[in-house]
Amino acid sequence: MSNCFLFDNDGTLVDSEYLCNVGLVLMFRRHGIELGADELVIRFRGWKLASLLSILEEEHEIKLSANFVKDYRKIVSELFDNELKPVEGVIDVLESLKGPKAVVSSGPMHKIKQALDLCGLSKYFGDNLFSSYEVGIWKPDPGIYLHAAKEMGYSPDRCIVIDDGPVGVKAGCEAGMKTYFFNRFNEECDSAGVVSFRRMAELPELVGT
């Protein structure tokens, strides 16, 4: 039986983390607050949006409007339309990995689908898309990956997680799955058994295809 590959989306399949945080920079600028997109990428990759906004509200002593998320999503969607690209080397990787594949993301479903469509990746996953917003579970809770495995018909020990965020790596490990950390920023990882790599092209050899 083949392995089942469970991919994170933002920053793993599509090069969207920076664009998502540019959206936050633009939104907070409306409040006279200057944030750095690069710093936000490092700090909040894979986080639930509501959680990171709550922290930023507290740090900057502001209360965001009820329309903030809607306006933010619109800005990000426009940035995606104009600038989104697949992660370098990921198409070759998806072509070479033999076995079913799914996307397991903390983002809303419409954002997942838009990103995959724009980057030409939808054909590799079909309907195997799992969003925290639909499941009601956010990384680092391992439940999101366990749910995806169950729906795909695979036991955790036959699943391989590929994620670029520390919270996602933690979720994969705690789900009992072999976890590969797409570690573009050369960060420390204290989760036991994680395989860290910096270039997507390295992945097929690491998983033994």
Rank of each mutant, 00 (worst) to 15 (best):
M1V: 13
S2M: 12
C4P: 10
F7E: 05
D10K: 01
D10Y: 07
T12M: 09
D15I: 00
D15P: 09
E17T: 08
E17K: 06
E17Q: 11
Y18V: 04
C20K: 13
N21G: 02
L24P: 07
L24C: 03
L24A: 06
V25C: 11
L26P: 04
L26W: 10
M27N: 03
H31F: 15
I33R: 06
E34Q: 14
G36L: 11
E39G: 04
E39S: 05
V41Q: 00
F44R: 02
F44C: 06
R45D: 14
G46L: 13
K48Q: 15
K48D: 15
K48M: 04
K48C: 14
L49H: 08
L53Q: 01
L53C: 03
L53G: 00
E58P: 00
E61V: 02
I62R: 01
S65D: 13
S65L: 12
F68Q: 03
V69Y: 07
V69F: 02
K70E: 13
K70Y: 09
D71F: 02
D71Q: 14
R73N: 14
V76G: 02
V76K: 08
E78L: 12
L79C: 02
F80T: 03
N82G: 02
N82L: 00
E83D: 07
K85G: 00
E88A: 10
G89F: 06
V90W: 07
I91T: 15
V93G: 05
V93K: 04
L94A: 07
E95F: 02
L97Q: 12
L97A: 09
K101R: 05
V104S: 11
S105C: 05
G107Q: 07
P108E: 08
P108Q: 04
P108L: 01
M109F: 09
H110T: 13
K113F: 05
K113A: 07
K113S: 11
D117A: 14
L118V: 10
C119A: 04
L121I: 01
K123T: 13
Y124H: 12
S131G: 10
S132D: 03
Y133P: 06
G136Q: 05
I137T: 11
W138D: 08
K139R: 09
P142D: 08
I144Y: 05
Y145M: 08
L146G: 12
L146M: 08
L146Y: 00
E151I: 15
Y154F: 15
S155Q: 13
S155C: 10
P156D: 10
R158T: 13
V161I: 12
I162R: 10
D163N: 11
D164K: 00
D164F: 06
V167K: 14
V167S: 14
K170E: 15
A171M: 09
G176K: 11
G176V: 03
M177K: 10
M177A: 02
F182E: 01
R184F: 03
R184G: 14
F185M: 13
E188M: 00
C189I: 09
S191Y: 14
A192S: 12
A192C: 00
G193A: 10
V195K: 11
R198C: 14
E202R: 12
L203A: 09
P204C: 05
P204I: 05
E205K: 15
L206M: 04
L206F: 04
V207I: 13
G208A: 08
T209C: 15
